[in-house]
Simulated assay, not measured.
Amino acid sequence: MRELTYYVGSSLDGYIAGPRGEFDGLPVELDVAAAMNGLRPETVPTAFREAAGLAGASNREFDTVLMGAATYRAGGTPSPYAHLRQYVFTAASEADSPDVTAVAADPAAFVRGLKAEAGLGIWLCGGGRLAASLAAEIDRIVVKRYPVLFGAGIPMFAGAYAPLSFTLTENRAFESGAVVQTYRKA
């Protein structure tokens, strides 16, 4: 069965974007980018793959990406991850590209269907409300935690109080001060 991984960048205080969806407060740390691009080249947007030296890189971990509507719009292109199956959860009936499937269905039921299919893993790219609605379906969380405080913004999980236990399986510190932590559902 395929796994759902929430792979996301976060501030120290748990925000994935600023109050108006700004994500420029999360630094691009070269040491983290080099390590993560080597492990998960498919998470680099299509528009930046060539510049990152990943133009011909194969998908290693994921073949599917899930995005909330705001995360999709922040990508700035109609097909931000053309090398993956792309789903955007939105009330709108269509996405801006035939390469992106708009989903208005219940996210958890939809993900359970994807998990039953053959293929590589499923990457939950963001945002906070979508992550909260899928929390029970998340098998693994990989968070790139950067040494910056936002104070306010869009949290990693923007939903109701509903505790779920995860176990830390990897904690990798970088010279830049960033940490990449991997958690598995307990």
Rank of each mutant, 00 (worst) to 15 (best):
residue 37 N to W: 12
residue 92 A to K: 15
residue 138 I to D: 02
residue 81 Y to H: 04
residue 69 A to E: 03
residue 104 A to P: 12
residue 91 A to T: 15
residue 115 K to S: 07
residue 53 G to H: 07
residue 56 G to V: 01
residue 139 D to I: 09
residue 168 L to A: 06
residue 35 A to Q: 14
residue 181 Q to Y: 03
residue 24 D to T: 11
residue 12 L to P: 06
residue 126 G to K: 10
residue 86 Q to I: 04
residue 162 A to Q: 07
residue 117 E to R: 15
residue 31 D to I: 09
residue 115 K to R: 05
residue 58 S to N: 06
residue 35 A to P: 11
residue 5 T to V: 15
residue 134 L to Y: 12
residue 178 A to N: 02
residue 15 Y to Q: 09
residue 40 R to F: 13
residue 125 C to Q: 13
residue 178 A to V: 07
residue 121 G to S: 13
residue 36 M to H: 08
residue 153 G to T: 05
residue 38 G to H: 14
residue 94 E to F: 11
residue 8 V to E: 01
residue 179 V to G: 01
residue 149 L to C: 02
residue 82 A to Y: 06
residue 48 F to D: 01
residue 116 A to F: 10
residue 36 M to A: 14
residue 120 L to Q: 02
residue 160 A to R: 15
residue 21 G to Y: 00
residue 22 E to F: 07
residue 135 A to R: 10
residue 110 F to P: 05
residue 143 V to G: 00
residue 81 Y to M: 00
residue 171 N to W: 09
residue 160 A to F: 05
residue 33 A to N: 11
residue 116 A to E: 07
residue 162 A to Y: 06
residue 13 D to A: 01
residue 2 R to T: 13
residue 128 G to R: 09
residue 76 G to P: 03
residue 31 D to E: 06
residue 128 G to M: 05
residue 148 V to S: 04
residue 114 L to K: 07
residue 143 V to C: 08
residue 1 M to V: 11
residue 119 G to N: 09
residue 127 G to Q: 04
residue 177 G to I: 06
residue 15 Y to I: 02
residue 153 G to C: 07
residue 52 A to G: 02
residue 173 A to P: 08
residue 19 P to M: 07
residue 170 E to Y: 00
residue 10 S to E: 06
residue 162 A to L: 06
residue 15 Y to V: 11
residue 161 Y to R: 13
residue 92 A to G: 12
residue 157 F to L: 07
residue 40 R to C: 14
residue 118 A to W: 06
residue 8 V to L: 08
residue 174 F to T: 02
residue 89 F to N: 04
residue 108 A to L: 08
residue 155 P to A: 12
residue 164 L to N: 08
residue 125 C to R: 11
residue 36 M to Y: 14
residue 144 K to C: 12
residue 80 P to I: 11
residue 72 Y to D: 00
residue 103 V to I: 07
residue 98 P to W: 08
residue 28 V to S: 13
residue 161 Y to V: 14
residue 7 Y to F: 15
residue 115 K to T: 13
residue 81 Y to I: 12
residue 34 A to V: 14
residue 172 R to L: 04
residue 185 K to T: 10
residue 144 K to G: 14
residue 144 K to P: 03
residue 178 A to I: 02
residue 106 D to E: 08
residue 135 A to L: 15
residue 107 P to A: 14
residue 112 R to C: 10
residue 121 G to L: 13
residue 113 G to L: 12
residue 14 G to V: 14
residue 4 L to D: 04
residue 28 V to H: 14
residue 140 R to C: 08
residue 56 G to L: 01
residue 170 E to M: 03
residue 156 M to R: 02
residue 185 K to M: 10
residue 23 F to A: 12
residue 144 K to H: 04
residue 183 Y to K: 05
residue 27 P to A: 10
residue 129 R to V: 15
residue 63 D to M: 00
residue 45 P to E: 03
